[in-house]
Design a protein around this nucleic acid. Structure first.
Ligand SMILES: [Mn+2]
Ligand SMILES: [Mn+2]
Ligand SMILES: [Mn+2]
Ligand SMILES: [Mn+2]
Lengths: 152, 152
DNA sequence: GTCAAAATGTAGCTATAGCTACATTTTACA
DNA sequence: TGTAAAATGTAGCTATAGCTACATTTTGAC
Protein backbone atom coordinates (compact mmCIF):
# COMPACT_ATOMS: atom_id res chain seq x y z
CA UNK A 1 0.00 0.00 0.00
CA UNK A 2 1.73 3.17 -1.17
CA UNK A 3 1.58 6.28 0.99
CA UNK A 4 1.65 9.86 -0.28
CA UNK A 5 4.81 11.63 0.94
CA UNK A 6 4.74 12.74 4.62
CA UNK A 7 1.25 11.32 5.15
CA UNK A 8 0.35 10.82 8.80
CA UNK A 9 0.03 7.22 9.93
CA UNK A 10 -2.60 8.30 12.43
CA UNK A 11 -4.93 10.13 10.05
CA UNK A 12 -7.55 7.45 9.67
CA UNK A 13 -10.52 9.79 9.94
CA UNK A 14 -12.27 7.43 12.34
CA UNK A 15 -13.33 8.50 15.81
CA UNK A 16 -12.23 6.38 18.79
CA UNK A 17 -14.93 4.61 20.79
CA UNK A 18 -16.70 6.97 23.20
CA UNK A 19 -15.42 5.25 26.32
CA UNK A 20 -11.85 5.23 25.05
CA UNK A 21 -11.94 8.90 24.19
CA UNK A 22 -13.54 9.80 27.52
CA UNK A 23 -10.84 7.88 29.38
CA UNK A 24 -8.10 9.72 27.48
CA UNK A 25 -9.58 13.13 28.22
CA UNK A 26 -10.10 12.15 31.84
CA UNK A 27 -6.43 11.24 32.20
CA UNK A 28 -5.47 14.61 30.76
CA UNK A 29 -7.75 16.46 33.21
CA UNK A 30 -6.27 14.52 36.09
CA UNK A 31 -2.73 15.37 34.96
CA UNK A 32 -3.73 19.01 34.64
CA UNK A 33 -4.87 19.13 38.24
CA UNK A 34 -1.45 18.05 39.49
CA UNK A 35 0.63 20.18 37.10
CA UNK A 36 0.70 23.18 39.43
CA UNK A 37 1.69 21.08 42.44
CA UNK A 38 4.52 19.55 40.43
CA UNK A 39 5.88 22.90 39.28
CA UNK A 40 5.85 24.32 42.80
CA UNK A 41 7.53 21.26 44.29
CA UNK A 42 10.18 21.20 41.57
CA UNK A 43 10.90 24.90 41.98
CA UNK A 44 11.05 24.65 45.77
CA UNK A 45 13.55 21.80 45.47
CA UNK A 46 15.65 23.80 43.00
CA UNK A 47 15.68 26.87 45.25
CA UNK A 48 16.54 24.83 48.34
CA UNK A 49 19.45 23.22 46.49
CA UNK A 50 20.86 26.34 44.88
CA UNK A 51 19.96 29.07 47.38
CA UNK A 52 19.57 27.13 50.60
CA UNK A 53 16.04 28.49 51.06
CA UNK A 54 12.77 28.77 49.16
CA UNK A 55 10.92 31.95 50.10
CA UNK A 56 7.41 32.71 48.81
CA UNK A 57 8.62 35.99 47.26
CA UNK A 58 11.31 34.26 45.25
CA UNK A 59 8.93 31.50 44.21
CA UNK A 60 6.44 34.13 43.02
CA UNK A 61 9.06 36.07 41.08
CA UNK A 62 10.38 32.96 39.33
CA UNK A 63 6.89 31.83 38.40
CA UNK A 64 5.91 35.32 37.24
CA UNK A 65 2.87 35.58 39.53
CA UNK A 66 1.96 37.89 42.39
CA UNK A 67 3.12 36.93 45.85
CA UNK A 68 -0.52 36.57 46.94
CA UNK A 69 -1.07 33.98 44.22
CA UNK A 70 2.06 32.11 45.23
CA UNK A 71 1.10 32.08 48.92
CA UNK A 72 -2.30 30.61 48.13
CA UNK A 73 -0.78 27.97 45.86
CA UNK A 74 1.79 27.10 48.54
CA UNK A 75 -1.14 26.61 50.93
CA UNK A 76 -2.49 24.05 48.48
CA UNK A 77 0.91 22.35 48.28
CA UNK A 78 0.94 22.16 52.09
CA UNK A 79 -2.60 20.81 52.16
CA UNK A 80 -1.44 18.07 49.78
CA UNK A 81 1.16 17.06 52.36
CA UNK A 82 4.08 17.98 50.11
CA UNK A 83 5.57 20.90 52.05
CA UNK A 84 5.70 22.76 55.33
CA UNK A 85 6.59 26.40 55.94
CA UNK A 86 7.91 28.64 58.71
CA UNK A 87 7.16 32.33 58.23
CA UNK A 88 10.21 34.28 57.10
CA UNK A 89 12.10 30.97 57.02
CA UNK A 90 10.73 29.75 53.73
CA UNK A 91 9.14 26.56 52.48
CA UNK A 92 10.42 23.02 53.11
CA UNK A 93 9.56 19.74 51.44
CA UNK A 94 8.18 16.75 53.33
CA UNK A 95 9.38 13.21 52.56
CA UNK A 96 6.53 12.95 50.10
CA UNK A 97 7.45 16.32 48.62
CA UNK A 98 11.06 15.30 48.16
CA UNK A 99 10.05 12.06 46.48
CA UNK A 100 7.78 13.95 44.09
CA UNK A 101 10.47 16.55 43.40
CA UNK A 102 12.92 13.84 42.42
CA UNK A 103 10.50 12.20 40.00
CA UNK A 104 9.46 15.54 38.52
CA UNK A 105 13.03 16.69 38.10
CA UNK A 106 14.11 13.50 36.36
CA UNK A 107 11.11 13.71 34.06
CA UNK A 108 11.76 17.38 33.27
CA UNK A 109 15.36 16.61 32.32
CA UNK A 110 14.39 13.64 30.21
CA UNK A 111 11.81 15.65 28.26
CA UNK A 112 14.30 18.46 27.63
CA UNK A 113 16.97 15.98 26.56
CA UNK A 114 14.61 14.27 24.16
CA UNK A 115 13.48 17.52 22.56
CA UNK A 116 17.11 18.62 22.15
CA UNK A 117 18.00 15.24 20.65
CA UNK A 118 15.26 15.82 18.07
CA UNK A 119 16.84 19.13 17.11
CA UNK A 120 14.69 21.53 19.10
CA UNK A 121 16.69 24.65 20.09
CA UNK A 122 17.52 24.83 23.80
CA UNK A 123 15.24 27.69 24.75
CA UNK A 124 12.24 26.19 22.93
CA UNK A 125 13.00 22.83 24.50
CA UNK A 126 13.09 24.32 27.98
CA UNK A 127 9.94 26.38 27.45
CA UNK A 128 7.90 23.59 25.88
CA UNK A 129 9.10 21.04 28.43
CA UNK A 130 7.62 23.17 31.20
CA UNK A 131 4.17 22.26 29.88
CA UNK A 132 4.77 18.90 28.21
CA UNK A 133 6.37 17.26 31.26
CA UNK A 134 3.07 17.06 33.14
CA UNK A 135 1.39 14.93 30.48
CA UNK A 136 4.05 12.31 29.76
CA UNK A 137 3.20 8.83 31.07
CA UNK A 138 5.69 6.35 32.51
CA UNK A 139 5.37 4.28 29.35
CA UNK A 140 6.26 7.24 27.17
CA UNK A 141 9.13 8.22 29.48
CA UNK A 142 10.60 4.75 29.07
CA UNK A 143 10.42 5.10 25.29
CA UNK A 144 12.20 8.47 25.53
CA UNK A 145 14.98 6.97 27.66
CA UNK A 146 15.30 4.03 25.32
CA UNK A 147 15.58 6.31 22.31
CA UNK A 148 18.23 8.49 23.93
CA UNK A 149 20.21 5.47 25.03
CA UNK A 150 20.10 3.84 21.59
CA UNK A 151 21.07 7.10 19.96
CA UNK A 152 24.02 7.49 22.36
CA UNK B 1 34.95 15.16 28.31
CA UNK B 2 33.70 11.71 29.29
CA UNK B 3 30.13 11.39 30.46
CA UNK B 4 28.84 8.77 32.88
CA UNK B 5 26.41 6.45 31.06
CA UNK B 6 22.91 7.90 30.47
CA UNK B 7 23.81 11.22 32.11
CA UNK B 8 21.48 14.07 31.23
CA UNK B 9 22.93 16.85 29.12
CA UNK B 10 20.58 19.31 30.79
CA UNK B 11 21.42 18.52 34.40
CA UNK B 12 23.68 21.46 35.11
CA UNK B 13 22.27 22.22 38.53
CA UNK B 14 22.11 25.93 37.78
CA UNK B 15 18.85 27.88 37.88
CA UNK B 16 17.84 29.94 34.84
CA UNK B 17 17.68 33.73 35.24
CA UNK B 18 14.50 34.85 37.00
CA UNK B 19 13.09 36.65 33.97
CA UNK B 20 13.76 33.71 31.70
CA UNK B 21 12.07 31.28 34.04
CA UNK B 22 9.09 33.59 34.57
CA UNK B 23 8.66 33.92 30.80
CA UNK B 24 8.68 30.15 30.37
CA UNK B 25 6.08 29.59 33.08
CA UNK B 26 3.97 32.42 31.65
CA UNK B 27 3.94 30.77 28.23
CA UNK B 28 2.82 27.52 29.82
CA UNK B 29 -0.02 29.27 31.69
CA UNK B 30 -1.13 30.94 28.48
CA UNK B 31 -1.14 27.61 26.63
CA UNK B 32 -3.11 26.07 29.46
CA UNK B 33 -5.84 28.67 29.12
CA UNK B 34 -6.42 27.76 25.46
CA UNK B 35 -6.15 23.98 25.87
CA UNK B 36 -9.84 23.52 26.61
CA UNK B 37 -10.87 25.66 23.65
CA UNK B 38 -8.63 23.61 21.39
CA UNK B 39 -10.02 20.28 22.57
CA UNK B 40 -13.60 21.40 22.07
CA UNK B 41 -12.95 22.82 18.62
CA UNK B 42 -11.07 19.71 17.54
CA UNK B 43 -13.81 17.42 18.82
CA UNK B 44 -16.56 19.50 17.22
CA UNK B 45 -14.75 19.31 13.88
CA UNK B 46 -14.32 15.54 14.24
CA UNK B 47 -18.00 15.04 15.06
CA UNK B 48 -19.13 17.28 12.20
CA UNK B 49 -16.96 15.32 9.77
CA UNK B 50 -17.85 11.84 10.93
CA UNK B 51 -21.41 12.24 12.21
CA UNK B 52 -22.62 15.29 10.33
CA UNK B 53 -23.51 17.04 13.58
CA UNK B 54 -21.93 17.96 16.92
CA UNK B 55 -24.51 17.89 19.71
CA UNK B 56 -23.69 19.02 23.25
CA UNK B 57 -24.71 15.61 24.64
CA UNK B 58 -22.31 13.75 22.37
CA UNK B 59 -19.54 16.24 23.08
CA UNK B 60 -20.09 15.75 26.82
CA UNK B 61 -20.10 11.95 26.57
CA UNK B 62 -16.90 11.88 24.51
CA UNK B 63 -15.15 14.24 26.90
CA UNK B 64 -16.39 12.33 29.92
CA UNK B 65 -18.02 15.34 31.59
CA UNK B 66 -21.61 16.18 32.50
CA UNK B 67 -23.74 17.84 29.86
CA UNK B 68 -24.01 20.94 32.05
CA UNK B 69 -20.23 21.26 32.07
CA UNK B 70 -20.09 20.84 28.29
CA UNK B 71 -22.80 23.44 27.71
CA UNK B 72 -20.96 26.01 29.80
CA UNK B 73 -17.69 25.28 28.01
CA UNK B 74 -19.41 25.56 24.64
CA UNK B 75 -20.64 28.98 25.76
CA UNK B 76 -17.01 29.94 26.29
CA UNK B 77 -16.10 28.59 22.84
CA UNK B 78 -18.89 30.73 21.35
CA UNK B 79 -17.75 33.78 23.32
CA UNK B 80 -14.30 33.27 21.81
CA UNK B 81 -15.86 33.54 18.35
CA UNK B 82 -14.99 29.96 17.42
CA UNK B 83 -18.48 28.46 17.15
CA UNK B 84 -22.19 29.10 16.90
CA UNK B 85 -25.06 26.85 17.96
CA UNK B 86 -28.72 26.26 17.18
CA UNK B 87 -30.65 24.44 19.93
CA UNK B 88 -31.30 20.79 19.01
CA UNK B 89 -29.32 21.40 15.83
CA UNK B 90 -25.88 21.17 17.36
CA UNK B 91 -22.75 23.27 17.32
CA UNK B 92 -21.08 24.74 14.21
CA UNK B 93 -17.63 26.20 13.69
CA UNK B 94 -17.04 29.73 12.47
CA UNK B 95 -14.31 30.51 9.94
CA UNK B 96 -12.00 31.16 12.85
CA UNK B 97 -13.10 27.92 14.47
CA UNK B 98 -12.42 25.93 11.32
CA UNK B 99 -8.99 27.45 10.97
CA UNK B 100 -8.14 26.58 14.58
CA UNK B 101 -9.53 23.05 14.16
CA UNK B 102 -7.27 22.45 11.17
CA UNK B 103 -4.17 23.60 13.01
CA UNK B 104 -5.06 21.64 16.12
CA UNK B 105 -5.81 18.48 14.17
CA UNK B 106 -2.54 18.61 12.26
CA UNK B 107 -0.65 19.18 15.49
CA UNK B 108 -2.42 16.33 17.25
CA UNK B 109 -1.54 13.94 14.42
CA UNK B 110 2.06 15.05 14.33
CA UNK B 111 2.48 14.56 18.07
CA UNK B 112 0.94 11.08 17.91
CA UNK B 113 3.10 10.15 14.92
CA UNK B 114 6.24 11.32 16.67
CA UNK B 115 5.49 9.40 19.85
CA UNK B 116 4.78 6.26 17.82
CA UNK B 117 7.98 6.74 15.86
CA UNK B 118 9.85 6.79 19.19
CA UNK B 119 8.33 3.44 20.09
CA UNK B 120 5.46 4.56 22.32
CA UNK B 121 2.54 2.09 22.09
CA UNK B 122 -0.48 3.45 20.23
CA UNK B 123 -2.84 3.85 23.17
CA UNK B 124 -0.22 5.62 25.31
CA UNK B 125 0.67 7.82 22.37
CA UNK B 126 -2.96 8.81 21.85
CA UNK B 127 -3.59 9.39 25.55
CA UNK B 128 -0.42 11.41 26.17
CA UNK B 129 -0.82 13.42 22.97
CA UNK B 130 -4.17 14.68 24.25
CA UNK B 131 -2.28 16.67 26.88
CA UNK B 132 1.09 17.24 25.22
CA UNK B 133 -0.33 18.75 22.02
CA UNK B 134 -1.34 21.99 23.76
CA UNK B 135 2.21 22.80 24.85
CA UNK B 136 4.17 22.16 21.65
CA UNK B 137 5.49 25.33 19.97
CA UNK B 138 5.74 25.86 16.22
CA UNK B 139 9.49 25.52 16.51
CA UNK B 140 9.20 22.14 18.17
CA UNK B 141 6.55 21.02 15.69
CA UNK B 142 8.95 21.77 12.85
CA UNK B 143 11.61 19.67 14.54
CA UNK B 144 9.14 16.80 14.90
CA UNK B 145 8.21 16.98 11.20
CA UNK B 146 11.86 17.14 10.23
CA UNK B 147 12.67 14.09 12.31
CA UNK B 148 9.78 12.06 10.88
CA UNK B 149 10.71 13.05 7.35
CA UNK B 150 14.39 12.16 7.79
CA UNK B 151 13.47 8.87 9.39
CA UNK B 152 11.15 8.09 6.47
C1' DG C 1 17.23 50.91 69.57
C1' DT C 2 14.35 53.07 65.86
C1' DC C 3 12.15 52.85 61.98
C1' DA C 4 11.75 52.18 57.00
C1' DA C 5 11.71 48.54 53.72
C1' DA C 6 10.82 44.01 52.66
C1' DA C 7 8.32 39.97 53.32
C1' DT C 8 4.32 37.82 54.58
C1' DG C 9 -0.48 37.39 55.18
C1' DT C 10 -5.54 38.57 54.39
C1' DA C 11 -9.64 40.15 52.00
C1' DG C 12 -12.32 40.43 48.20
C1' DC C 13 -12.89 40.31 43.43
C1' DT C 14 -13.06 37.72 38.56
C1' DA C 15 -12.94 33.77 35.57
C1' DT C 16 -12.63 28.91 34.73
C1' DA C 17 -14.13 24.18 35.26
C1' DG C 18 -16.24 20.74 37.42
C1' DC C 19 -20.63 18.71 39.84
C1' DT C 20 -25.89 17.68 41.03
C1' DA C 21 -30.56 18.92 40.83
C1' DC C 22 -34.28 20.78 38.62
C1' DA C 23 -36.83 22.97 34.64
C1' DT C 24 -38.03 23.32 29.94
C1' DT C 25 -38.22 22.10 25.22
C1' DT C 26 -38.04 19.06 21.41
C1' DT C 27 -38.25 14.49 19.35
C1' DA C 28 -39.80 10.15 18.64
C1' DC C 29 -43.04 6.67 18.71
C1' DA C 30 -46.98 3.91 20.22
C1' DT D 1 -51.87 12.88 18.32
C1' DG D 2 -50.42 12.63 22.99
C1' DT D 3 -47.02 11.47 25.90
C1' DA D 4 -42.54 9.60 27.52
C1' DA D 5 -37.77 9.99 26.72
C1' DA D 6 -34.06 12.60 25.33
C1' DA D 7 -31.84 16.81 24.83
C1' DT D 8 -31.07 21.26 26.30
C1' DG D 9 -30.84 24.88 29.55
C1' DT D 10 -30.54 27.04 34.32
C1' DA D 11 -29.33 27.46 39.19
C1' DG D 12 -26.34 26.98 42.72
C1' DC D 13 -22.58 24.82 44.78
C1' DT D 14 -17.20 23.78 45.25
C1' DA D 15 -12.41 24.32 44.09
C1' DT D 16 -8.70 26.36 41.54
C1' DA D 17 -5.94 30.21 40.00
C1' DG D 18 -5.22 34.62 38.98
C1' DC D 19 -5.35 39.82 40.39
C1' DT D 20 -5.14 44.38 43.47
C1' DA D 21 -5.37 46.58 47.79
C1' DC D 22 -4.51 46.70 52.42
C1' DA D 23 -2.66 44.98 56.98
C1' DT D 24 0.82 43.01 59.76
C1' DT D 25 5.23 41.26 60.95
C1' DT D 26 10.07 40.77 60.58
C1' DT D 27 14.58 42.30 59.04
C1' DG D 28 18.12 45.13 58.48
C1' DA D 29 20.42 49.71 58.14
C1' DC D 30 21.68 53.46 60.53
MN1 LIG E 1 6.11 22.47 34.39
MN1 LIG F 1 9.50 21.56 35.23
MN1 LIG G 1 -6.03 17.75 23.91
MN1 LIG H 1 -6.39 16.54 20.53
Amino acid sequence: MTQPPFASQSATGKLPAEGTQARRFGKTRSAQSTALLEDYVELIADLLDSEGEARPTDIARRLGVSHATAIKAIARVKRAGLATARPYRGVFLTEKGHALAHRVRARHRLVVDLLRALGVPTESAEADAEGIEHYVSETTLKAFAQFLKARG
